[in-house]
Simulated scan of single mutants.
Amino acid sequence: MKQLNLIAFFLLCSCTISTFAQKNKKMDIIAYYTGDDKLINEYEISKLNQIIFSFCHLKEGKLSVDTPKDSVTIKHLVSLKASNPQLKVLLSLGGWSGCEPCSAAFSTAEGRLLFAKSVKELSDYFKVDGLDLDWEYPAIEGLPGHLYQPADKTNFTELIKILRSTLGKKYDLSFAAGGFQKYLDESVEWKKVMPLVNRVNIMSYDLVNGYATVTGHHTPLYSTNPKEESTDRAVEYLLKLGIPAEKLVIGGAFYTRTWKEVANVNNGLYQPGVHIQGVSFKNYATTYTEANGWKYFWDDKAKAAYWYNEKEKTFATGDNVTSIKAKAEYAKAKKLGGVMFWELPLDTPRDGLVNTIYEVKTAK
């Protein structure tokens, strides 16, 4: 009897370990990637679950790979799967400036079907694992001048339906979603769309964007006041709608947003300014130094990093090791689908933000 109990105990232990291992694997690390077939080799692919090639575009209503160079890159990304069995490679449509014809192209059943068939053809040809839609944005203004119309919201639903029926269950289907309230309220029919997709990649960054004339945290984990956008605010909104936690992926920003002409009040936070070019994470160590006049600050309520240069009256906001660790721990605690980020070439090849997420994921 004792022997049977011992066997049962070991079986229970092995099952428990297996269950936790499976749960652990569910926290995916997802990289958007705009680089070529050479740059990717500098990074630790074994720590990624998904690479989203960015971007493909619409050409005559079809998903199109822009150049022969892009084709070479996609083929190389797919080849990395041979030595990385956990890895999936997706194509992405659009981007901030890359979806100008989307509203018109997806406004008819014929247009949506034409696109869906082209996605299937390209996916089969390149042997990729699926598609990430990055339409910025259905039904609300994205890049100034791009067409958007109220019908986009239902057309987006119909687009997801035809993509899923055309691609079948074999292919992954996801979309990048604005992490701000207007998008969450007006762009997507969440309860109709989410059962048909594998995940939504919440762009919980650029929440204070390049058009803003007042500084703020652009990728905070938490809101510090009821009106402030944040990662947690978007996640809680979708969880309350009944969206499964494992289908929600939160976003990290491997770059800063920066403003000049910012007064030395509140260390530059929530002050008027003029937006200028930001800095990649891989360049933080040489840019945000005391020798260059920068001071580092941490907002413990927002779980957000920021920097201020009193001499140059310049303010910067973005993810760093501390904030990305907090996001990864949040995703793990809430059993979310994982963490994605924009974008891999902005990270250091070793001991950077990807490594930080990976350490949280694999910690016991």
Rank of each mutant, 00 (worst) to 15 (best):
R199A: 13
N320W: 05
I140T: 07
G111D: 04
V128K: 07
K295E: 14
E189I: 11
L131C: 01
F281R: 04
G216T: 06
T108Q: 13
V235F: 02
L131A: 00
V214F: 01
Q277L: 10
N225I: 02
Q149R: 14
V262I: 09
N49Y: 01
K69A: 15
A109D: 12
E343P: 13
W96V: 02
S97Q: 13
N41I: 00
I202G: 10
L239H: 08
L113T: 11
K295L: 11
K334V: 08
F55C: 09
N225A: 05
L241A: 02
Y183F: 03
A82I: 06
S83W: 00
L184Y: 03
T157Y: 14
K127W: 00
E228C: 13
Y296D: 02
K2W: 10
V72W: 02
M203I: 11
R164H: 05
L196E: 09
Y306W: 12
L163E: 05
Y125G: 08
K335I: 03
A305P: 06
E246K: 08
I29N: 02
E329Q: 14
G35E: 02
T213Q: 15
P272W: 10
L196Y: 04
C13T: 11
T287P: 03
A328L: 00
L122G: 06
D300W: 12
K75Q: 12
E136V: 03
L113F: 11
V274M: 15
Q149I: 11
D70G: 10
L346P: 01
G352E: 12
K59W: 09
K227C: 04
K153N: 04
K59C: 09
P195W: 12
A8W: 15
G278F: 07
T258F: 07
L77A: 08
N225D: 11
H218A: 10
I30R: 11
V89S: 03
F115K: 07
R257F: 09
T34P: 08
V188D: 07
L58R: 05
K361Q: 15
M194L: 14
L143Q: 13
Y137S: 10
M27F: 12
K26V: 10
